[in-house]
């Protein structure tokens, strides 16, 4: 199956590879601008404010202004920092975030790399970000950065387990780790999505609480893994300035920023793929096809981005002990129960 229209366009050569690499990067930049604006505007609206209004009509080019501002800023490297690692960390974090885009199927005709381990790959590549955060926090030679890094890593490795259980459940349900295959298995009407138990007998209705539960668990765990509110303890401004990126400025800070937005998209895309049928149209054959697929996929992912922003402007930050309680004592046992139930469902099929 040809999963990449670019290869059929440009051929299987270096040019094709380059184009395949660059396309998600272009998308990422455009998306990040939209997401930044969304964050500013939605946050403002939820607080009955108007948000930025002076750059462009209704402040629509505000994100560009922000990026330009970040580019102009001085790139400070603290004297006492471990220079090489300090400068390396943002790149590692951004690379880790961007590497996940390699397996995200935007459309049946465009998957940058259609490996058969997509889900596992995304899960594994996240561990680079952990090291990057550690590197940034340690190399800054600043107690707040170090504390932020330690908190961040503790949080990410705690929430990786429930997230892993959620991914395992979907793997059990789909019988594959290939993203495109997972999506193809959910084709048809929206009742075939894995949040409703996938296609199969009507008996799957009984498992709705479990599939829905594992969805909520993955949603919460993914919020924690991307350090978004209410799990932004690693960058809790009121306690540790800005956590692991306290010392960063200018473009290096922008890399952290971009990485956060890239991660947001990756988890939203994963939620879409694993539970909401990816690029499938919700209405069977109606409005489906490679182009519509992109629309559906981005539409679904963007609604999850909206959900993340919505949650961010609703909930206050958790305390560290609450975070650990939620992770280990609530999400983990429930995810095990859900996993076993879903494994049963997979066996019944």
């Amino acid at each position: 199956m040809e999963t990449n229209f670019i290869y059929s366009l440009l051929g299987n050569n270096l040019l094709g590879y380059l184009a395949v690499c660059i396309l998600p990067l272009v998308f990422l930049i455009v998306y990040a601008l939209v997401a930044i604006l969304g964050e500013l505007k939605i946050g403002a609206f939820m607080q009955d404010r108007l948000g930025p209004m002076r750059t462009g009509p209704w402040g629509t080019i505000q994100p560009i202004a922000e990026v330009v501002k970040l580019l102009q800023k001085e790139n400070i490297t603290p004297d006492a920092a471990s220079k090489f690692l300090f400068n390396l960390a943002p790149f590692i974090i951004f690379t880790a975030a961007f590497a996940a885009f390699a397996v995200i199927p935007f459309s049946p005709k465009f998957v940058p790399s259609g490996i058969n381990l997509g889900l596992f790959y995304i899960f594994a590549i996240g561990s680079f970000a952990v090291i990057g955060i550690f590197m940034g926090g340690w190399a800054s030679n600043n107690k707040y950065s170090l504390l932020g890094a330690v908190r961040s890593v503790a949080q990410i490795i705690s929430y990786e387990i429930p997230a892993g259980m959620a991914i395992l459940s979907i793997a059990a349900l789909a019988g594959t780790l290939d993203m495109n295959e997972i999506i193809t298995k959910q084709s048809g009407w929206f009742t075939n999505w894995y949040i409703f138990g996938g296609s199969g007998s009507a008996l799957r209705i009984l498992f709705l609480p479990f599939t829905f539960g594992i969805f909520v668990i993955y949603l919460i765990a993914s919020l924690a893994e991307t350090n978004r509110t209410p799990f932004d303890i690693p960058e809790g401004e009121s306690e540790i300035v800005a956590g692991y990126h306290t010392e960063y400025s200018g473009m290096k800070f922008a890399m952290f920023f971009f990485a956060e937005y890239a991660n947001m998209f990756v988890v939203s895309a994963l939620l879409t793929i694993m539970f909401f049928g990816g690029w499938n149209s919700p209405f069977g054959d109606f409005m489906s096809g490679p182009i519509w697929a992109v629309v559906w996929f981005l539409g679904k992912s963007m609604s999850f981005i909206f959900l993340q922003i919505w949650l961010r402007w609703t909930l206050p930050r958790l305390r560290v002990d609450q975070l650990m309680y939620t992770g280990w004592k609530v999400l983990l046992p429930i995810s095990f129960v859900c996993f076993f139930a879903i494994a049963l469902l997979a066996m019944l099929k």
Partner: peptide, 11 residues
């Protein structure tokens, strides 16, 4: 918060 999203703004 979603109610406030569509409410009249005070700015």
């Amino acid at each position: 918060t979603i109610n406030h999203l569509v409410m009249r703004k005070v700015t």
